[in-house]
Amino acid sequence: MDNTLYVGLSHQMVLRREMDIVANNIANSDTTGFKVESLMQKTDPRSPPFALGGSSPVKFVTADGVARDFGQGALRRTDAPLDLAIEGQGFFKVTAEGGERFTRDGRLRTDEIGRLVTQGGAAVLDDGGGEITLNPEKGQVSIAADGTVSQGDERVGKVGVFTFESLSALEKTGDNLFQNTSNLQAQPAAEARVRQGMLEGSNVQPILEITRMIEVSRAYERTSRMMDSESELARRTVERMGRAQ
């Protein structure tokens, strides 16, 4: 019976982690460029210390990583000249503290020296890996669908949009940024298009996430009831054995 309680406890630990992920999805349903996440699970067979006619091995529940849906979020118009959205697969490359990062968050601005940066201050890189600097005296900024940045008749640079052969290479690092944790090299996203004056919304579907939250909550309650029943059965068994003696 102890094995049953341990299995139930392992399931509850995974459910609590899943609840945290679902709650984070809901909290970021309005975050620009946020990608919905889900928890993967697997069984972890372990041999029990003893099994009096019970099943062997005992299969515990454990988390098997976090899956991320990089599907396109809805584009909304802002008409702000430094708001950019990527239509299609790809990421802006930026340089932040700790090295190169990638993001879909196109809420850009200029810093005190005119560099094009994210809201967090990470410099946006062009297609060759250099920074893009704007001069307010040169007029309005125009950004074409291929990422070319112009001021008046002068070409200032080209916003780089990159992708990977496998998006599993990217790991979330916070501040809506991703880090390449593999040996894969970022490649130009030739089919992606940059949309000026627009932002990509989160691809979270709040109704689905609320439904998931309810399902996780109910699963946790069912597991708790099962564990309570097993504990009660063990208590009664001990009492009966004590009276028999």
Rank of each mutant, 00 (worst) to 15 (best):
G54H: 06
H11K: 11
D127A: 02
G114V: 04
A190E: 13
G90E: 08
P188T: 05
L170E: 03
Q185T: 04
G139Q: 01
E100M: 06
T110I: 15
P45E: 13
P206L: 13
I26N: 02
A23Y: 09
S56N: 15
E97G: 13
L15D: 02
T148H: 08
N3I: 15
G197Y: 10
K35L: 11
N183T: 01
A85K: 01
V159T: 03
Q196P: 08
G106C: 12
Q151I: 03
F60P: 03
E18N: 07
Q41D: 14
V141A: 07
M213A: 04
G174H: 09
D44H: 10
Y6T: 07
Q140N: 04
G73V: 09
R101Y: 10
G65Q: 06
E37M: 05
P48C: 10
E171W: 11
D69V: 10
V61A: 02
L167F: 12
L15H: 05
A192S: 10
A189H: 06
D2M: 14
E215D: 02
G114L: 00
T103Y: 06
A23K: 15
G160M: 07
D79Q: 11
G71Q: 08
L208C: 01
G130I: 02
A244C: 11
A63L: 12
K42F: 04
G65I: 08
G106P: 03
L233E: 09
V117R: 09
G88L: 14
T31N: 08
S231H: 07
D175S: 05
E137V: 13
S202N: 14
S182E: 08
P48Q: 10
G160C: 06
A51M: 15
F92D: 01
Q151F: 05
K35W: 07
G139S: 02
S142C: 01
R76K: 14
D83F: 06
K138S: 01
L233W: 06
A123Q: 08
A63M: 13
S168H: 14
I214N: 11
I210M: 09
F91W: 10
S217Y: 07
T62K: 11
E221D: 04
L116G: 02
G197W: 12
L15Y: 07
A144P: 15
V7S: 09
E137T: 07
G106N: 07
R101C: 08
R46K: 05
A169L: 04
